[in-house]
Every structure is written in structure tokens, then in C-alpha cells.
Design a protein around this nucleic acid. Sequence first.
DNA 1: ACACATTTGTGCAAAAAAGCACAAATCCTC
DNA 2: GAGGATTTGTGCTTTTTTGCACAAATGTGT
Lengths: 229, 229
Amino acid sequence: MPSKVSSSSKDGNSPKISEATVSRLPAYYRALSQLADAAQVRVSSEELAALTGVSSAMLRKDLSHLGSYGTRGVGYEVEFLRYQISREMGLNNDWSVVIVGVGNLGRALAHYGGFGSRGFRVVALVDADQTLIGTKVKCGAEGKTVELLVHALSDLEDVIKETNARLGVVATPAESAQVVSDRLVKAGIRSILNFAPVHLSVPEGVDVRKVDLASELQILAFHEQRKAV
Amino acid sequence: MPSKVSSSSKDGNSPKISEATVSRLPAYYRALSQLADAAQVRVSSEELAALTGVSSAMLRKDLSHLGSYGTRGVGYEVEFLRYQISREMGLNNDWSVVIVGVGNLGRALAHYGGFGSRGFRVVALVDADQTLIGTKVKCGAEGKTVELLVHALSDLEDVIKETNARLGVVATPAESAQVVSDRLVKAGIRSILNFAPVHLSVPEGVDVRKVDLASELQILAFHEQRKAV
DNA sequence: ACACATTTGTGCAAAAAAGCACAAATCCTC
DNA sequence: GAGGATTTGTGCTTTTTTGCACAAATGTGT
Ligand SMILES: NC(=O)c1ccc[n+]([C@@H]2O[C@H](COP(=O)([O-])OP(=O)(O)OC[C@H]3O[C@@H](n4cnc5c(N)ncnc54)[C@H](O)[C@@H]3O)[C@@H](O)[C@H]2O)c1
Ligand SMILES: NC(=O)c1ccc[n+]([C@@H]2O[C@H](COP(=O)([O-])OP(=O)(O)OC[C@H]3O[C@@H](n4cnc5c(N)ncnc54)[C@H](O)[C@@H]3O)[C@@H](O)[C@H]2O)c1
């Protein structure tokens, strides 16, 4: 897994769903959404597993941690199961996202339309580049396009407070990532998605997930190298 | 972990490095490069572990799978260890990458300069959009900028043959991803990095790593939701 | 109402990964 | 060159994750 949650264990009373399971729930959700779009009513563990690339046994065990939402001899109701996963994952809530670093990647993320359909909304863009600050960037894809102003890094705390952002995306160069992360945390952000290829140190209670594209290619290269000549 | 290798186990005679270890090697490599840039000669497992966010014991065990490259009581030589990792991972070779889908994300990847410094070179861009085909896209960042022509999807096989590309990146919409993947495989590609939020079915021997940005946000949201109110 | 075909949910076993602790190796000082 | 301070490499333990197999539950057909 090219990325891991770092800190935070957090358990109050919830039955504790394993990290491995959590990391697969989004794929199930996505597949169920697809089936729902195709107006399919029911799905078996076998079918859903094939769609998501896991074994049917693993799928069933994963789902069993959420509750007993299937019917033996029949399968799962697509819409019902989809709803249960979305509820468990908090996708009903509206998640506000602030993106710091509006370069190649930050802009691509802002333009992307696929987040909105899943409860995520980019509400603020922040950069340190004077030539970018004050410019407008189109956010979201067809239909729901919004123009967002690029804010100055110095306004980070205010922007977060005003927009109530709870998720932070770091898309700055590696050198600035730790500083940006520190400021995000200080401003109250406790969930960070980091694209900079550095490890971010954050206090207990803050989650960081790292997406490292270069690492992914390197891992592929490693295996490629080992394949028969 | 936002991504996993799907198929391929592959073992000829190599001592078999665990998948978990392989997934961490790029981070070690990156940190060592940083230290080398800062002209640091030696590093302890403790220090390197802190830089990469793992425990020192895990780091040592990971490295021990490559060989015994440290010196007890002293630590590791930065340059030497870096070289050993790069050799093990095949980063000395030059890896040619073809990107299919030159939209928001594909373009951001093409523009990105960080790949070149690690043995990866984007050698071809392919898209299905008639208005894009034939246009030129700047590839790589400052210094080593190259303009690449966007090729037609119908030329995919030829382009791969001519450029000798061995790594394929799928950055098309989800609907097209499986078709594109099939064609990449048929053209001889056996390592694919997939950004489309769908599971790709590939034959035995082909590796797919999936990077699903929306999933990452969802996983963060899941944990965020569980944090104290 | 009963036998039979399906498909889930789950206890248990196996495998993989992470963590611990310490002996072995090296360096430094005197 | 002996003793003490470090720091690696690794056997062993614990935890996490995956896989297997089957009983329990449901639907169907007669
Ligand atoms: N573009 C890619 O395909 C790609 C691939 C792999 C990794 N990455 C990583 O993602 C990150 C962003 O990549 P990119 O290609 O968008 O880079 P980029 O240089 O295009 O954009 C970086 C942006 O961050 C801004 N910035 C710099 N310092 C800042 C600070 N302290 N606060 C706020 N903003 C700041 C810059 O002004 C710039 O707009 C980098 O860390 C890069 O290594 C990118
Ligand atoms: N942009 C993001 O930040 C982001 C985030 C998460 C996921 N993704 C995923 O990454 C993929 C690409 O995203 P994007 O934002 O770049 O989309 P995009 O629509 O901007 O670009 C997609 C490109 O693929 C091309 N294309 C379509 N069908 C094709 C085919 N059969 N063969 C070759 N090219 C084809 C299109 O012409 C277009 O240029 C999508 O699957 C998207 O869900 C993107």
C-alpha cells in the first residue's frame, strides 16, 4: 500500500474495524455505485469481489464487520449495502477540503470532478506564489464548476476557519511540505493527504496518508526487473 | 495503503524480498538522496527511520534483506546504501513510461520533473481525443524540458514498440481504463500504474498498482469521523 | 411441508508483517 | 590492547491479515 495512516488509533465504543478492511471499503463503495447506476438490485459476494479484485471470503468478512447486511442464499441489496458503507465511512457528511500548493498536481486535483460525487468539496486553494495568489481557478468538472480564488499562504488559518475545512491536501514541493503540514495542524486540520515525497511528522491524533507517485513507479520497476528476460 | 500489486509473484533465485519491504525501499532511497544532497556521509538506522516514519528495527530488517551493508557501532554509508537500493530496485536502468490519457492528471504527470531524477522518462503520450492528438505537451520540468507529441490511441502498439516503453500509466476515465489496459498488455506492457478508480483485470504476470485519490480521502474521512467531537 | 440448491457469516488455521531484545561486531579512549 | 560505548543484524514473539471450509439461513420447487 503506497500510503498508510500514521498515528491515531481511536476507539471509543465502535467495534473496531481493521485498517486493512477500511482501506478496501472505498473500492466496494465504488463498485456498488457502478452497479446501482446500472440498475442492478442484488449482488453476490462472488460478483462484488470480482469487481474489486479481492477474494469473496475476504469481502464477506470485511462486510461482516459493518453488520449483517446480506441475506444467505441471496446476496446483498446493492442500494442498501452502498448506503451502509457510505454511512459507516461518513460519506453522507459533506467534507470540505483545502488544497495547499496549486501547481501541476494541485490544479489537476481542483479540476477533478470525481470528488464531488462522493461528499468531498474543494473549498479553498492556497499557494505561496505571488503570481498565483488572487487568480481564479476552475474547480470541479462539468455541471458544477465553481471558480475559486487562490489565497495567500499567510491567510491559511483564516481560510480554514471560514470554510470549516477538515481535510488538508499538501501538494507543495517536498521542501515546503513539513512547514505547510505544521500550519495545517496548528489551524485545526487533523487529516492530511500528502503528495510531497517526504514523511510528515505530525502530533498524535493527526492522520497523514501519503501518495507517492514516484514510489509507485519504483515498485513497478522493481518487479519488472525481476521478470524473465 | 492506497494501492497494491495484483498478480505476479516471480521468484527465480533471488532471496525473495517481502512485498512490505519493497514498498518501503523507495522512501529509504528518497531519504538517502536527501542526505547525500546535504553531504552527509553516514546515517544510523535510528536517524533514517525517523526520516521515513518507520521504526528503526523495521528499517534494519528491511535493509538486511538486501545484504549486510551497515557497520555495527557506526551505521550506514549514505552513498553506498543509496547505490545498493537503487541497484536492487533497478533504478540504474532507464525506465520508459507511456502515459495513456492526457487530461488533467496525465498532463500533470507529464509536466512533473521529479521522475527523471530517478530513472523514469515519459517517452510517449497517447489519447483518444481528436482535438488533443497531434498537439505538443511540455514534458519534464526546468532544465530538461522536452515537447512530446500526443499520439492517437490507434497508434498505441506502434508507439510502444518504437519507444520501447515498459511501464504504462492509465490516466483515462474509468470507463475506458479496462480497454486501455487490455491494449497495453497486448502490446507487451507488463507493469501498469492505474489512476482510474476501477479494478483492472490483467493476465498472470502483469502487475497493476492502483492509485485511487478519492479512496485516500475517504479513508481519511472515515478516521476523521471517528475522532472525538 | 419437505428436500435441495444457494450464498452468507464465521470459527479456525496459515501466512505475513511488525515489534522486541540481545548477541555480535565495530569504534574510541586510555 | 583491554574495556566501554555504539549500533547493526537477527532469532523469537506478538499482532495483523488472509485463506479455508462449513454450518446456518434463506429461497425454490414439488
Ligand atoms: N505533478 C506530478 O505529477 C507529481 C508526481 C509525483 C509527485 N508530485 C509531488 O507533488 C508535489 C506538487 O507537485 P507539482 O508538480 O504540482 O509541483 P509544482 O511545482 O507544479 O507546484 C507546487 C506549488 O506549490 C506552491 N508552493 C511552494 N511552496 C509553497 C508553500 N510553502 N506554501 C504553499 N504553496 C507553496 C508553488 O507556488 C507551486 O504552485 C511535489 O511535492 C511533487 O514532488 C507531483
Ligand atoms: N484529476 C484528478 O485529480 C483525479 C483524481 C482522482 C482520480 N482521477 C482519475 O484519473 C483519471 C483521469 O482523470 P483526469 O482528471 O485526468 O480526467 P480527464 O477527463 O481530464 O482526462 C481523461 C483523458 O483521457 C482521454 N481518454 C478518454 N478515453 C480514452 C481512451 N479510450 N484512450 C485514451 N485516452 C482516452 C480523454 O480524451 C482525456 O484527455 C480518471 O479516471 C479519474 O477518475 C483523477
